[in-house]
Design a protein around this nucleic acid. Structure first.
Length: 551
RNA sequence: GGCCCCAUCGUCUAGCCCGGUCUAGGACACCUCCCUUUCACGGAGGUAACAGGGGUUCAAAUCCCCUUGGGGUCACCA
């Protein structure tokens, strides 16, 4: 097997959900490697025992697959993953790390340190009060006699291993940011193995990138300063140095970090604004609600947050890839838009697919500044993509979306009705989800349909004579007499009435009809709406509407 | 606070490396008008930026310096 010229990796910590920022990083790593005929690999950084317990820890893989970002090596999912350089879970590579760790200690490039957390905290605190940055002081631990170290280890004293960082400035060479030099002393003797025996992130990354023959490290800019530590370790271990590229962060419009905490904030604000003291029915328990509201620092689980949001009828900001999926965004649009945050192909091109990205992606064109994530523009892109696709494609993609996220809706509508509805909704849909949210009236029973009592409704129905209500009365027998119940047949039946009684102003008849059958002022085009609804429901609802508003 | 990085319309960005073609381009948003049976779409126009100050130069958005502003990072998290 030949060695690929280019190997990139995406190395997240385990999670059930893929954050959009992570998705963008993965996308760039993927595009970079695949554009060069190289390998893109996935590695799970699960060295934090406290965080790596849950079984859904690699749920984010499905998000990656949904986006169309396939990985050549890594955890197996469908046709993705596998590879000869595993295991790809760091927690399964402990003996590998320990080998290199021992080598460093042996060579005097790393040492055991027995400081307690309390001692270190105190020193950090003192440094902070003194107004300078804390740097680990190696004078005690680095010079412990070997006999002492062995004795303390033998008696089971908790110990970490620290890297003995050489003195001197460190220059980071970065393909997007250029060169940056950290002054001597800026990188101290950092921990490379924790007291629990697990390597720290820094150590595991360096070893794995070497062993997995990673050539290019593309990661978020928040890792920039870590690079110096990784360089120190590479030198100590005699490893080659990969090429680095640090990608600009993606933030909220207010420049704050995008995090699932944003969902919590929306919910908390809603609860406070509405002065609620109890959760809505069928959401979360009162006890959970109280505990959550009592402490600003606790967060609801994602599932709880969704339940509560549904109960409160608020929409949560999309943060994770599956949030966007649920909201009805297209994976290809999300990829396109994500790529535009931090990169652009120039030449005023901004609509492209991942194939184009693969061919054109280039570190030189990655921007240095953080990008504020603009959901409105994403929505506009999504709208363009939806209205631009063939009708059959929209219908089938909307169907899949409905089956996954609106099972109740799909159950109460026939296949034929769905096809008509989707067809009528196509050109007015900005997302795959919209038609399910705005057309609930199709799936409720005729006798529970309620009419909204808004200004617009009253204006359309109860204005000066001849008003909407009288048009409804007049048009009812016309509809009853319709032999064929299709959009075109209905149009042919109603239009003459409009010509005769409203000077051809179809709206004067259409809007009352819309209200009568939907309960509100918004629906697909009126004849489609009536056709989908069917003869019985349409007539039923019009009769009830007349009765209701006449009373 | 120390250290590092960055700085073009409200937002994402093109241009910057290799000064003149930039009276700074595109997209989203916004405003106006048109289309229209609701919603949405669509069409035509428009508003809108080189953070500030010093240099260098015949010429600076483009090069240099300072100021200001923003971001990142300072864990036995990753």
């Amino acid at each position: 097997m030949s060695t690929p010229s280019c190997v990139t990796r995406f190395a997240p910590s385990p999670s059930g959900h893929l954050h959009v920022g992570g998705a963008r990083t993965a996308l760039f790593c993927w595009a970079f490697a695949k554009g060069k005929g190289g390998t893109f690999l996935l590695r799970i950084e699960d060295t934090d025992q406290k965080r790596s317990s849950d079984s859904a820890s690699v749920g984010f893989l499905k998000d990656l697959a949904w986006l169309g970002i396939g990985w050549d090596e890594g955890p197996v999912l469908g046709t993705h993953g596998g590879g000869a350089h595993g295991p790809y879970f760091q927690s399964e590579r402990l003996d590998i790390y320990n080998r290199y760790l021992a080598q460093l200690v042996e060579a005097g490039k790393a040492y055991y340190a027995f400081d307690t957390t309390a001692e270190l905290d105190a020193k950090r605190q003192a440094a902070k009060l003194a107004g300078h940055a804390y740097r680990y002081d190696r004078s005690e631990m680095a010079n412990l006699p070997k006999a002492t170290v062995d004795a303390w280890l033998a008696e089971g004293r908790p110990a970490v291993i620290r890297c003995k960082t050489p003195d001197g400035p460190i220059t980071i060479v970065d393909e997007v940011l250029g060169e940056a030099t950290l002054p001597a002393g800026e990188v101290d003797d950092f921990v490379i193995r924790k007291a629990d025996g697990f390597p720290t992130y820094h150590f595991a990354v360096v070893v794995d990138d070497e062993l997995m023959r990673v050539t290019h490290v593309l990661r978020a800019q928040e890792h920039f300063n870590n690079t110096a530590k990784h360089m120190v370790l590479q030198d100590a271990l005699g490893f080659r140095r990969p090429i680095y590229g640090h990608l600009p962060l993606i933030t909220n419009p207010d420049a704050s970090k995008m995090s699932k905490r944003d969902k919590d904030k929306v919910l908390r604000k809603t609860v406070i604004d509405r002065k609620l003291t109890a959760p809505p029915q069928d959401t979360i328990s009162q006890a959970r609600f109280d505990a959550w509201m009592a402490d600003k620092n606790t967060q609801l689980e994602l599932a709880e947050a969704s339940l509560l949001a549904t109960g409160l009828q608020v929409t949560l900001p999309e943060i994770n890839v599956d949030d966007f999926r649920q909201s009805g965004y297209l994976p290809e649009v999300l990829c396109n838009f994500l790529a535009l945050n931090g990169w652009s192909p120039g030449e005023n091109v901004e609509k492209f697919d991942t194939e184009f990205l693969k061919q054109r992606f280039d570190l030189k064109r990655v921007v240095k500044t953080p990008a504020k994530f603009d959901r409105t523009k994403l929505l506009s892109f999504n709208c363009d993509a939806i209205t631009g696709m063939p009708r059959e494609e929209f219908v089938s993609r909307a169907r899949l979306h409905g089956q996954e996220f609106h099972a109740d809706f799909m159950k109460r509508i026939t296949a034929e009705q769905f096809e008509q509805l989707a067809g009528a909704s196509h050109e007015r849909s900005k997302t795959l989800d919209e038609m399910f949210r705005t057309n609930r009236f199709f799936i409720i029973a005729d006798d529970v349909l309620a009419w909204e009592r808004s200004k617009n409704v009253e204006k359309a129905l109860l204005g000066p004579e001849p008003n909407g209500l009288s048009h409804l009365r007049a048009v009812l027998p016309v509809l009853e007499g319709c032999a064929e119940w299709s959009a075109t047949a209905l149009e042919q039946a109603i239009t003459p009435y409009a010509v005769q009684h409203t000077e051809g102003n179809l709206g004067k008849v259409a809007q009352p009809l819309r209200i009568a059958v939907s309960g509100g002022t918004v629906s697909p085009p009126i004849f489609d709406t009536l056709a989908i609804l069917g003869r019985d429901s349409t007539l039923n609802r019009i009769r009830r509407c007349i009765a209701t508003f006449t009373a």
